[in-house]
């Protein structure tokens, strides 16, 4: 049975797109067939993070409007053959999305894939509401700071009221993914702690992704961090999150950078 998962946050810049790509790739590595959809019409990024920007011909809007067939718009990942991307249009805006069109596309994808990951745009307007509209489950991406947490709270409220499942009286299962977490800064009180965030949002934790240079490096080369550097701290956090998503019990830790002997000996370059 195909699962529709929306990756959302309310606030921009917290790591929705990065997380969608990383989770999608990690899911695909377990053998599941996965499609990631970019709902950020007009400001698309998922194609860049996935390294597929030079192969976009048709996009979600073309499919929604019936200009292109779904098969024509889907782009297969070069590294993983069971990972696919449905890109957004960069030249249009969110008004080009229709509820009926999105419903049709998702119903169609459900017959072909195990997992459908919807990368939501920031905000609470049309793009974001349509990205979550048909979701079975939701991943709420949050940074450990108050504005991001409050926006996440708002989004959780919308997941409980504006989705098809909510309107039918069913539940959208929600998972919290904390990104850009810095344990040292949280300990010094410069960041909200995981406990603070969980206390405010009252939503089960899916994973804690540490702040890391590896995330930016992976984005810049157009490769999900879970493919680019599998052993890195953020990649291990995303892989653990995917295992939890698939029902495994994995103890919750914040992965740390593995330092080699030379790193430890040569800790700091003298000025």
């Amino acid at each position: 049975m195909a699962k529709v998962l929306v990756v959302t946050s309310g606030k921009g810049g917290v790591g929705k797109t990065t997380s969608t790509a990383a989770l999608g790739a990690a899911l695909a590595q377990t053998g599941q067939s996965v499609v990631v959809i970019d709902f950020d019409v007009g400001l698309r990024n998922l194609d860049l993070v996935m390294g597929a920007e030079r192969r976009v011909v048709f996009d979600l809007i073309n499919v929604v409007q019936g200009v292109a067939k779904l098969q024509q718009a889907l782009i297969r990942d070069k590294r993983l053959e069971n990972l696919w991307l449905l890109p957004a249009s960069q030249t249009r805006d969110k008004d080009a999305l229709t509820e009926e069109g999105v419903r049709r596309v998702i119903a169609d994808l459900k017959t072909k894939f195990d997992w459908i990951l919807c990368d939501s745009p920031a905000g609470i307007e049309r793009g974001a509401t349509l990205a979550m509209r048909y979701a079975d489950e939701a991943i709420i991406v949050t940074n450990p700071e108050v504005s991001s947490v409050r926006d996440s709270d708002r989004i959780i409220g919308m997941l409980d009221s504006k989705t098809v499942r909510a309107e039918r009286g069913e539940r959208v299962e929600k998972h919290l993914l904390v990104t850009r977490y810095d344990a040292a800064r949280a300990a010094r009180g410069e960041m909200l702690s995981i406990d603070d965030i969980l206390e405010i949002l009252a939503t089960p934790l899916l994973g804690i992704v540490p702040e890391s240079q590896d995330v930016l490096k992976a984005s810049n080369v157009g490769c999900p961090v879970t493919l680019n550097n599998t052993g890195s701290a953020p990649a291990r956090a995303y892989i653990d999150a995917v295992r939890r998503l698939m029902g495994e019990t994995v103890s919750m830790t914040v992965p740390v950078e593995r330092k080699g002997l030379m790193d430890r000996l040569l800790r700091r370059r003298a000025a």
């Binding site: 108050v146 709270d153 708002r154 409220g157 409980d160 009221s161």
Partner: peptide, 27 residues
């Protein structure tokens, strides 16, 4: 019986309101 989230507005002019859970900032 669930938390009231940011942006939600619960209006009940007829009587008391009891919330089993938290009321978020902005609710």
């Amino acid at each position: 019986d669930s938390p009231v989230r940011s942006g939600q507005s619960i209006v009940f002019a007829e009587g008391d309101v009891t919330v089993l859970g938290s009321v978020g900032s902005g609710a």
